[in-house]
Design a protein around this nucleic acid. Structure first.
Length: 278
DNA sequence: AAACAAACCTGTGCGC
DNA sequence: TGCGCACAGGTTTGTT
């Protein structure tokens, strides 16, 4: 599921349902979800704490608690955060089950178990989660200027898509949106960054912001395997706007001439139109 | 510096 | 129907 637009959709849902709520009983199932600390630290850190604010940094969700601690949730490949009425048994792969003081329930569900939840005091937070300090600019919060892109690309032999996926450059772009951004920019994802003209850098900067904002407006992308996006289980609809992602062999919607090709870049499937992307 | 490989897991879809 | 393989929205670590 989750790149910036999906994580932002979850953030908004949690802001609506979780701010002001207190965690009552908390059950941590699988040890792996709390691997950076321990099941006990995760349970104790949440239990009795009230949520003050819900933030996002790139793909990282941050729940600010009234206990001077912060909870970090990362969904990785298959994580979901769901708020429900708590009247049924938690679905399979519910690794964290937290009852709320209003009778609802928060679930962290994650079949592939790459995701994690960390609770730590403000002091130890940066030491425990050092990658937060290495995140680059956030397209939604900071915007992306042509100068940001020029300085990211100049003298870099790396391929454009590789840079877009680098969370220390721009935070929040993942495999779907990197492909969609390249397509909207008219730039092949395997193009070496230093060969981009100033005009291409401007198109890239604009496309990053436009694609991400549009995807957020539509609640992110929910793919065929129906991993939900919203905390209420509602799917997003940006998948209907995908122009290249998972469209290998189909005709390009934009130019009507190219057939979408798939290549591997940084071990990730990458899709582009050979006619309108150069 | 940059590309590549593998690792962490489970589930699904496809060809045979 | 069943089996084996490829592949999946992310990130880290280690090797070329």
């Amino acid at each position: 599921m989750p790149e910036l637009p999906e994580v932002e959709t979850v953030r908004r849902g949690l802001e609506r349902t979780l701010v002001g709520r207190r965690f009552d009983e908390v059950t941590v199932g699988r040890e792996r979800v709390a691997r950076r600390t321990s099941r006990k630290e995760l349970r104790d850190g949440l239990t009795g704490a009230r949520v003050v604010r819900v933030d996002r940094r790139g793909k990282y969700l941050l729940l600010e608690l009234d206990s001077d601690s912060v909870a970090m949730v990362h969904l990785r490949m298959s994580g979901q955060v769901v708020i429900d009425e708590g009247r049924t048994a938690p679905p399979a792969h519910s690794h964290v089950v937290a009852d709320l003081d209003d009778g609802q329930r928060m679930l962290f569900i994650d079949p592939r178990t790459f995701g994690e939840v960390v609770v730590a005091s403000r002091n130890e937070f940066e030491i425990l989660i050092p990658e937060l300090g290495r995140l680059g600019i956030d397209p939604l919060v900071d915007g992306v200027t042509i100068d940001d892109v020029v300085s990211m690309c100049c003298n870099r032999r790396r391929r454009v898509k590789s840079l877009l996926l680098d969370q220390s450059e721009i935070a929040g772009i993942g495999n779907i949106y990197a492909d969609e951004i390249c397509h909207r920019s008219g730039i092949r994802p395997d193009r070496q960054a230093h060969t981009l003209s100033r005009r291409s850098c401007r198109r890239l900067a604009d496309s990053i912001v436009d694609v991400i904002e549009e995807a957020v407006d539509l609640g992110g992308s929910t793919l065929a395997d129906a991993q939900y996006v919203g905390v209420d289980g509602e799917p997003g609809s940006y998948q209907d706007r995908h122009r290249v992602y998972a469209r290998t062999g189909q005709r390009c919607i934009t130019c009507g001439r190219g057939i979408i090709r798939r290549v591997m870049i940084d071990q990730r499937s990458s899709h582009f139109c050979p006619v309108c992307q150069r």
